[in-house]
């Protein structure tokens, strides 16, 4: 009976005590070790000179970065990536937040149908709707090009903003809005002075998450991008699948550049959002 412990305070003690816990932690450690191996081997390789039959390369150098930068035209690629991502963020917030507001606050005929329509793009594999969408975009001359990439990336992003913001808006007490209106605030003042400031943290979180997803989105961009509208991840894919033509290390250098971009975004994101929000919709009530 002495082993019956409350869960909160004794996790650390149990770590020492139970063999089951050791097994779990060992699994976590194994996973992290392999992860470190995966990331580390790319990182080391990108700084290495010759690396064949040894634990580490023969020497270290930074020249692959310069090579990759020039060879792949990374400045252009990065600026295209940023342009596309920011456009997607802006448009999806502008479309998604008002819709989330209505879905959070109102009941109306066919609401479940509308919700389902917003959920589908997230549930479907990107290729499933990506190929017909790309065909349509090509037909209208919107792809290949930045417009096509932005439009196709909006398909999962707008529903994502809606799904993230709806619970966030739901947890804002609706009587706060009623109170503002009873104080004489019209719709404009309501949104600018009361709802706006309360929604900023949620919008920021949703925006950053969309940014991370768009920078990392491969399939849709791949299907709609032309040579001058490739994002970093697509450029990386092309250089990898054409391996052999270029030095392995310069591809590694490019992968590191991509990862550091994502990591910077991740670090920024984690300042604003809980890690679980990176994958799920906002579940926990944010601090006031």
């Amino acid at each position: 009976m002495a082993a019956t412990t409350s869960t909160n305070t004794t996790t650390r003690r149990r770590l020492v005590a139970s063999p089951g816990a050791w097994l779990v932690w060992a699994a976590v450690a194994f996973f992290l070790l392999n992860l470190a191996g995966v990331v580390g081997s790319v990182l080391v390789s990108s700084f290495g000179t010759r690396w064949f039959d040894s634990w580490f390369p023969e020497g270290f150098t930074g020249e692959w970065y310069g090579a990759a930068w020039k060879e792949f035209g990374l400045l252009d690629v990065i600026s295209v990536t940023l342009q596309i991502s920011l456009l997607v963020v802006l448009i999806s917030v502008l479309i998604g937040v008002p819709a989330a507001y209505v879905l959070a606050r109102r009941t109306f005929p066919f609401k479940r149908l509308v919700m389902f329509a917003f959920l589908l793009p997230i549930l479907m594999p990107p290729i499933t709707y990506g190929i017909p969408l790309a065909t349509v975009l090509y037909k209208f001359g919107l792809a290949p090009g930045i417009a096509g990439v932005v439009l196709s990336n909006l398909v999962p992003s707008v529903p994502f903003v809606i799904l993230t913001m709806t619970p966030f808006i739901e947890q804002i007490n609706p009587s706060i809005e009623s109170a503002a209106r009873m104080c004489g605030a019209g719709v404009r003042a309501l949104f600018l002075r009361v709802l706006g400031p309360l929604l900023v943290p949620g919008i920021l979180a949703a925006a950053i998450l969309v940014l991370v997803r768009t920078v990392g989105m491969f399939e849709l961009t791949f299907l709609t991008a032309g040579p001058d509208s490739q994002t970093l991840v697509v450029a990386l894919y092309y250089s990898m699948s054409a391996a052999g033509i270029r030095a392995q290390q310069s591809i590694d250098a490019m992968a590191v550049i991509y990862t550091s971009t994502m990591l910077v975004l991740l670090v920024i994101a984690l300042r604003f959002v809980n890690p679980t929000q990176l994958v799920a919709r906002v579940k926990e009530t944010p601090e006031p």
Partner: peptide
């Protein structure tokens, strides 16, 4: 969380 941001392409390279 890191692997989520790695994305499939870097994971493949790694």
């Amino acid at each position: 969380v890191v692997p989520i941001t790695l994305g499939t392409v870097l994971t493949a390279q790694g």
